[in-house]
């Protein structure tokens, strides 16, 4: 079930638009913000709230890579794997992360602390390689500085 606050926030977004359905991406973001990811029940709940079918909601949810349809850890690491970061050596950073966290792309640590995902260009190619943790951007990453960054997230 959606909480009162979630429904309120979704209604607020829907009110700005010509029809309710148009707010579905916002609704998914609102629910994910509070719950970390979108489970099947949330898909049904959002569908009911916006008067659309669950299949329609899921077709949108599965299209956008930052809507998570599987559980994620407490902190999500998005490592840029696009061209400038490729040239500047993101693979070394990936190898270091694999070693430190014992997970590969698409996986979550056993203690649910981190999920590691690849991500397309983050628009800071002059400061590659780059990664984002919980929305916070880190640039000019070196394997030596990774520990300091990871320590901030418990």
């Amino acid at each position: 079930m959606l909480s009162k606050e979630e429904i309120q926030d979704i209604d607020h977004e829907a009110a700005k638009l010509p029809y309710k359905k148009a707010a579905v991406i916002e609704a998914l973001k609102i629910v994910q913000q509070r719950r970390g990811w979108i489970n099947d029940e949330s898909v049904d709940d959002i569908a009911r709230c916006l008067e659309m079918s669950a299949a329609e909601v899921d077709s949108v949810a599965t299209f956008y890579n930052l809507i998570f349809r599987r559980p994620v850890g407490r902190h999500v690491i998005l490592l840029c794997d696009s061209i400038s970061c490729y040239v500047m050596g993101y693979k070394k950073i990936y190898e270091a992360l694999q070693e430190k966290l014992k997970i590969r792309f698409g996986e979550t640590t056993a203690d649910q602390r981190f999920t590691l995902l690849p991500n397309a260009c983050m628009g800071c190619c002059d400061r590659a390689p780059a990664l984002i943790i919980n929305g916070e951007l880190y640039t000019d990453i070196e394997t030596e500085t990774l520990d300091d960054i990871l320590l901030k997230y418990t």
Binding site: I83, G123, C124, D126
Partner: peptide
């Protein structure tokens, strides 16, 4: 929606 890989001008 600046997302062309290698592009960071609008930022």
């Amino acid at each position: 929606d600046e997302m062309e890989p290698g592009t960071f001008k609008d930022r």
